[in-house]
Simulated assay, not measured.
Amino acid sequence: MQTPAPSSLIIPSTRTMINLVIGGAIGLFVWECWARLFTPLIVGYPLEPAGLLDALAQHLAGLNLPRLFREAVHYGIGLVGYPIIYFAVSRHVPRWPVILDAIVIITFSFSIFRDISAGMFTPAKFMFLTAVIALVFSRLINRDERIANCISWGNFTWFFALGLMAPIAGLSFYLLGEGGELSYMSLVGHVIYGYLAALVFEKLEDRQKPAM
């Protein structure tokens, strides 16, 4: 995935937009299976992206949004929002995987060590940090740059949801204040979603390239 010069603005074609949505749809389908089927079996309750949207609306504007609307926004973000952001970042930001990895490592490490300094240390949280660091630095032994980059994108979607949106909604940073179980399950789900959405899109784009 070569990144062009920042000065060259790349506008996605109709075919590229379709590929982005297809990638987003496949990633979102697997996310839904993980969030609503497997997560309850592990922690006892599902992941609820619509709940985060509700917290945002209530915290910022005091609004109670209908669940159907919140679910529609969630699907819109998964199908179109994240894929378009991925396209913009991957095509216009030099060394974007390194930048996104750095954002995840720095912000999550800060949140963990802040909990430790506040006397909220638990071995599970330290293991959580170890897992995130290992996932980010797995690119050092990953011989497939595309796979490594797609994992980096998945990591970033987790940061965007829980490291950025959650605090804006008045919730704890990375939801660590809730114990960390929900955050860990969200990490797995977002990595799977982002990885598949990006990988499927890139493979579909490869098919559109003229044969050499």
Rank of each mutant, 00 (worst) to 15 (best):
F29T: 14
L52I: 13
P40Y: 07
L52Q: 05
L41M: 15
N64Q: 08
L65Q: 14
L28C: 08
Y45Q: 10
L47C: 09
A72P: 04
A35W: 01
H74E: 11
L47G: 04
L63Y: 13
D54Q: 07
W34G: 00
V43C: 03
P40T: 08
G51E: 06
F38R: 01
H74P: 01
A61K: 07
L41E: 13
L52D: 01
L65E: 05
E32H: 11
E32S: 12
L28I: 01
W34I: 13
V73C: 14
F69H: 07
L63K: 11
R67W: 00
A55P: 01
C33Y: 10
L41G: 11
T39I: 04
L63N: 08
L52F: 12
L28E: 02
N64E: 08
G44P: 07
R36F: 15
P49K: 06
L52Y: 03
E48Q: 12
A57C: 12
P46D: 09
G51H: 10
L28Q: 10
P49F: 01
H59Q: 08
H59Y: 07
R36C: 11
P40M: 10
G51T: 01
E48K: 11
F38V: 15
C33G: 10
E48H: 07
F38P: 00
F38Q: 03
L56Q: 02
Y45D: 08
W34E: 05
L68Q: 11
P46I: 00
L52K: 04
L56I: 06
A57D: 03
V73P: 02
A35F: 02
H74F: 05
E32Q: 14
G51F: 02
L28F: 08
L47Y: 02
R70T: 13
P40H: 06
L56N: 00
L37E: 09
C33S: 06
P66K: 04
A72I: 10
P40V: 06
E32I: 04
W34Y: 08
V73S: 09
L53H: 06
R67A: 00
L60F: 10
E32R: 10
A61T: 06
L47A: 05
I42E: 05
P46N: 14
L60Q: 11
I42A: 10
L60A: 12
W31Y: 15
T39L: 11
L63E: 11
R70I: 04
C33I: 14
I42L: 13
G44H: 10
P49T: 04
W34D: 00
A55C: 03
E32P: 00
V73Q: 08
L63V: 13
L47H: 03
L65G: 04
F29L: 14
F38S: 07
I42V: 15
P46G: 15
Y45R: 12
A72C: 07
A57S: 15
A35Y: 02
E71I: 12
V73M: 12
A55Y: 05
C33V: 13
L63S: 11
W31G: 00
P40C: 11
A61P: 03
L28H: 05
L52W: 03
R70D: 09
Q58G: 15
V30I: 15
